[in-house]
Simulated assay, not measured.
Amino acid sequence: MDFAFQITDWYHQNKRNLPWRNTRNPYHIWLSEIMLQQTRVAQGLPYYYAFTEAFPTVTDLAKAPEERVLKLWQGLGYYSRARNLHQTAQKIAFEFNGQFPESYQELLKLKGIGNYTAAAIASFCFDQKVPVVDGNVYRVLARYFAMDTDIASSGAYKEFFALANELILDENPGLFNQAIMEFGALQCVPKSPNCNQCPLSSGCLAKAKQKVNVLPVKISKTKVQEKHFNYIFFEDDLEQTLLVQRSNSGIWKKLYEFPLIETAEVATEDVIINWLNKSEYQKQWLSVTQLISAEISHRLTHRLLHIKFWKVRIKSQLNNGLSRASALALPTPIVIFNFMNKQWS
């Protein structure tokens, strides 16, 4: 109990003033938690404001076209979150009459809501005594109790959940959950935490055993795949370009991008010309130029993309060519290309 009271006392004195902390509205809590998965607060905050302005209620979000939802999400990444968000909003709005389930177990049945998000909504909004376990919680508990369990292992969640369940306050469990997550985000940070100014340092076993820098243990077993993407930036006499919609699969499914050539190795100009000569533009293209300044690397969770852009001049007007695409949802590399080159918007 000392741990719980110390950490909630710290929270009252040090917590950030974030908009979703000033409400018990489950729609706002849910929205913020989905947005902050794999995302820093500073990055997610503008998106939170944009979504709550565009869609003040869960029903507004449910009624919106998916294309608009994806466009507002553009740049936040992990687009499956946005699709699940939209589908779950529709279920809540049209099947549950706009009301979120109040129990942890019922929340888990909704698409895109896992153990952490269900626990957050249940405790923050409905005072359900369910502990949250995220990266911050793993780190705080692993250090304070000197736990050397690999947090990437199959049994880690169950072990840390059980410990957090012993520590959580009976009254106001949401406060405890907020406090331990904030403590991990601001005080017990991943690298070089200021242990001398930590209110829990006297009881921290990692500090006593000089293991702060090695806990929590996480042994990565995922190999990063490297891929080569070659985007074709067509430009016709009207300075229009061509965007195509990706198929209904993959991390960027249904987003719009330039025509893409995937290669196993670094592509040469001959590869691009060979592709053009087999395409519908075989008699129309005039020149091929590699835009060296636009080469970028883009890191996804388990993939590293090496991306080149090739400018191809077309002698006649492109079918379905676009001079602007402000309403279309685009993958981050396409947005970066536009920002870097200012040739298309």
Rank of each mutant, 00 (worst) to 15 (best):
P333T: 04
S323R: 13
P333V: 10
F309L: 10
R299V: 15
A327S: 12
I292K: 15
A327R: 09
T301L: 08
L304E: 06
I307N: 11
I314N: 08
K308V: 08
P331I: 08
F309C: 07
A329H: 08
K311L: 10
E295N: 14
R299L: 13
Q317E: 06
I292A: 15
Q290P: 06
L300V: 12
E295F: 10
G321R: 04
P331K: 05
S287Q: 14
L305S: 03
K315I: 13
L330N: 00
L286W: 06
H298N: 12
V288E: 05
N319I: 02
K311N: 08
W310P: 02
L305P: 09
R313F: 03
S293G: 10
I334F: 00
E295D: 10
T301W: 10
Q290E: 15
N319V: 00
H306I: 05
R303C: 11
P331G: 01
S323C: 02
L305A: 06
I334R: 00
L304Y: 14
T301A: 11
I296Q: 00
P333D: 02
L304S: 08
L304P: 01
L328C: 05
N320H: 09
S287M: 10
K315P: 02
E295K: 15
S287R: 15
R299E: 05
L330Y: 01
T332W: 07
L305Y: 15
N320E: 13
A294F: 12
I314R: 08
F309K: 08
N319Y: 15
P333F: 04
T332M: 04
I314P: 02
S293A: 07
R324S: 07
Q290W: 11
H302Q: 15
R303A: 12
S287I: 02
Q317K: 13
S323Q: 13
H306M: 12
L328M: 06
K308W: 06
F309M: 06
V312R: 04
H306Q: 14
L304M: 11
N320C: 10
P331Q: 03
